[in-house]
C-alpha cells in the first residue's frame, strides 16, 4: 500500500515536471519519425536494394551495386558535372552582384528601402513563374533578349536550346531570382560594421580598394560563409526552374541530380527507386562535404 502510494506520488511528480514536455515532444517526434527520420533511413536502405517504385514486393538486397553502377552511368556523371558548373556560375555571379549591390545600398543615406523594394521582389515570387518568364525572354525567335541583342548587331543566340549555353542560361535566370536575398544578408552585415574601422583605415591612408579588401571583406566573413553555404546547398539540390525550363535537356546538358532522382524514380519505364535513392544519398554526402569544407576554409583563412 505504502509502496504504491510512493510510486504514485513519484509518478505525479514526474508528470507535473515533464508532462507538458512530453505532451509536446511526443507528437513532434512522432511526426519526425514518420515524415523525416523514417524516410531518410528508408532511402538509405532502399539504395542498397533494387526495389521498384510502385511495387516493393520483389525487392532484393544488392549491397553497393547501385552505387557501383552509378560510376558508369553517363547521365549521372553528366548531372554531376552540370551541377558543378551550375553552382560555380550561380555562386560567382550571385556573390559579385549581391555584394556589389549591398555596397551601393550601404552608401545611401536615404532611399534604401525604395530600391530594395524592387530588387527584392524576384526573391518572393514563385520559381515556376520565373521559369515561365525566362522561357519567353530566352525564346530564340520571339524572345526579348535576342531582340535587344539584334539592336546592337549581335546575332541571335539559342540560349536554353543549345547544349553549350543552356546550363549558363538557367544559372543566370536563377541568379536573377535569388541574388536579392544574398544582398540583404550582406547589407545587414555591412551596416553592422562600426564606422570607426573605416575611419581608422582612412587615417592610415588606405585606398578604397584596400579598405574593401582588408577591412570590409574580413568583417563580412560570417555573412559570406552563410551565403556560400546557402548557394551550394540550394544549387546542388536545385530542381524546379531547370525542370520547368529545359527538363534536363537539350541532350542532358542541364540535367541535375534532383531531376535524375525524379526521372529514375518516377519516370515512365524506370521506377528504379533503389537506384534513384543511391543518387539522392550521393547528393547528401556531397552537400555535407562541401559545407564542412567551406566552414573549415573560412576558419583557416580569417582566424
Amino acid at each position: 500500500m505504502a509502496a504504491t502510494n510512493l510510486s504514485e506520488r513519484r509518478l505525479a511528480r514526474f508528470w507535473s515536471k515533464y508532462g507538458f514536455v512530453l505532451a509536446v515532444l511526443v507528437p513532434i517526434l512522432l511526426w519526425f519519425s514518420i515524415f523525416s527520420f523514417g524516410p531518410i533511413l528508408y532511402a538509405l536502405y532502399a539504395s542498397l536494394t533494387n526495389t521498384h517504385s510502385l511495387d516493393p514486393s520483389r525487392a532484393r538486397f544488392v549491397g553497393l551495386d547501385n552505387y557501383i553502377s552509378l560510376l558508369d552511368d553517363r547521365r549521372f556523371l553528366a548531372s554531376m558535372s552540370n551541377v558543378f558548373r551550375f553552382v560555380l556560375v550561380k555562386g560567382i555571379l550571385n556573390i559579385v552582384l549581391s555584394l556589389g549591390l549591398a555596397l551601393l545600398l550601404e552608401r545611401l543615406r536615404r532611399g534604401r528601402n525604395f530600391y530594395l523594394f524592387f530588387i527584392f521582389m524576384p526573391v518572393v515570387i514563385s520559381q515556376v513563374a520565373v521559369a515561365m518568364l525566362f522561357l519567353w525572354l530566352y525564346d530564340p525567335r520571339l524572345g526579348l533578349i535576342n531582340y535587344l541583342l539584334s539592336l546592337v548587331e549581335i546575332p541571335p543566340q539559342s540560349f536554353i536550346r543549345s547544349t553549350a549555353q543552356a546550363i549558363y542560361s538557367v544559372a543566370i535566370a536563377d541568379v536573377w531570382k535569388t541574388y536579392g536575398y544574398a544582398a540583404v544578408i550582406f547589407l545587414a552585415g555591412l551596416l553592422d560594421i562600426p564606422q570607426d574601422y573605416y575611419e581608422a583605415a582612412k587615417v592610415d591612408g588606405a585606398t578604397r580598394l584596400q579598405t574593401l579588401w582588408r577591412v570590409t571583406l574580413p568583417l563580412l566573413k560570417n555573412p559570406l560563409v552563410l551565403v556560400m553555404v546557402l548557394i551550394v546547398i540550394d544549387g546542388v539540390q536545385h530542381f524546379t526552374m531547370v525542370q520547368v525550363m529545359t527538363g534536363g535537356g537539350p541532350a542532358d546538358s542541364t540535367l541535375m541530380p534532383s531531376i535524375l532522382v525524379y526521372n529514375y524514380g518516377l519516370g515512365a519505364n524506370n521506377y528504379r527507386m533503389g537506384y534513384a535513392c543511391a543518387i539522392s544519398f550521393i547528393m547528401f554526402v556531397v552537400i555535407m562535404a562541401i559545407t564542412v569544407f567551406q566552414l573549415r576554409l573560412f576558419r583557416s583563412l580569417y582566424d
Partner: peptide, 24 residues
Amino acid sequence: VIFTIILSTLMVPPAVTLLPLFRL
C-alpha cells in the same frame, strides 16, 4: 541530443525523402 537530431534533418536534401514519402 533530440534537438541536434531534429536540426540535422535540415542538411538532408528533399530528393532523399522524395521516393520514400511518395511510397508512404
